[in-house]
């Protein structure tokens, strides 16, 4: 599955993986803003931005082909809107939508592939995101795999039970609703169990990180260099 792959990538060891998550988040934002303000027909800056991303992928030791392919998830949407804009006579916007939304998607994927989600979320928390939201997102990500697998099993079981395709749409609809209700109840009781277990283990209201966030000189230099480079490219 897609997220399992990204999760595995994010546990690698490279200079990019070692950077502080806050530095990566801020660099990502600067990159996205610079990209958003670049004209769609400015070939040179866009090529340099793309080259920067490829360099990042190589430094991080990620498989470039696979990553660039994963980022194409955005293309169905942008191709549709690109086509609509092109039909409406706005071909510059059509090109811009497709290339810039793809580059943005690669940039985000590069950051999440070099930062484990707990570190990314605690980076976001120390940049001001409310604690409760971060906690909920952490639980969500942790149980996403568990509950999804359960849903997968239920879907398989249902598919093997309902023999005749196309028959009794109403009853299949009701069966799907019943399956979701069961999944809901399972999730609800699971959450109560998790809660009791966590209280028993003395949960303090915050997930500790194995390696606490710490800004090093290298982090500061990276942020400075990236921002300076991006701005310089944009000015030219």
């Amino acid at each position: 599955m897609h997220h399992v792959l990204v999760d595995r990538w994010s546990r690698g060891a490279s200079p990019l993986h070692a950077l502080d998550p806050r530095v990566k988040i801020l660099s990502l934002l600067v990159f996205l803003i610079v990209l958003a303000t670049t004209a769609a027909n400015a070939a040179v800056p866009l090529t340099i931005d793309a080259a920067l991303l490829v360099a990042g992928i190589l430094i991080a030791g990620l498989p470039p082909g696979t990553l660039l392919f994963r980022a194409m998830a955005v293309l169905p949407f942008s191709l549709t809107f690109g086509l609509i804009s092109w039909l409406a006579g706005d071909s510059l916007r059509a090109v811009g939508l497709i290339e810039k939304s793809y580059l943005s998607s690669v940039a985000v994927l590069l950051v999440v592939s070099t930062t484990s989600l707990p570190r990314l979320l605690s980076g976001l928390e120390s940049l001001g995101t409310p604690r409760l939201l971060v906690l909920v997102a952490q639980f969500l990500y942790r149980y996403l795999f568990v509950i999804s697998e359960q849903a997968q099993h239920m879907r398989l079981a249902a598919a093997s039970r309902q023999g005749i395709p196309g028959a009794h749409r109403r009853s299949r609809f009701r069966a799907a609703a019943g399956a979701l209700a069961v999944l809901f109840a399972h999730s609800y009781y699971r959450a109560e169990g998790i809660n009791r277990a966590m209280l028993a283990r003395g949960f303090s209201g915050k997930f500790p990180l194995l390696k606490p966030l710490r800004l090093r000189t290298a982090d500061g230099l990276f942020l400075l260099a990236t921002v300076a480079f991006l701005v310089l490219v944009r000015v030219q």
Binding site: V136, Y143, A151, A191
Partner: peptide, 26 residues
Amino acid sequence: EDTRVPLMGVMGAFVFAAQMINFPVG
């Protein structure tokens, strides 16, 4: 209450997973 934080997270995961269950609509 604070004790229901896991519930909100798991319910989020449920909504995510629920999108795998298809409803025939014709």
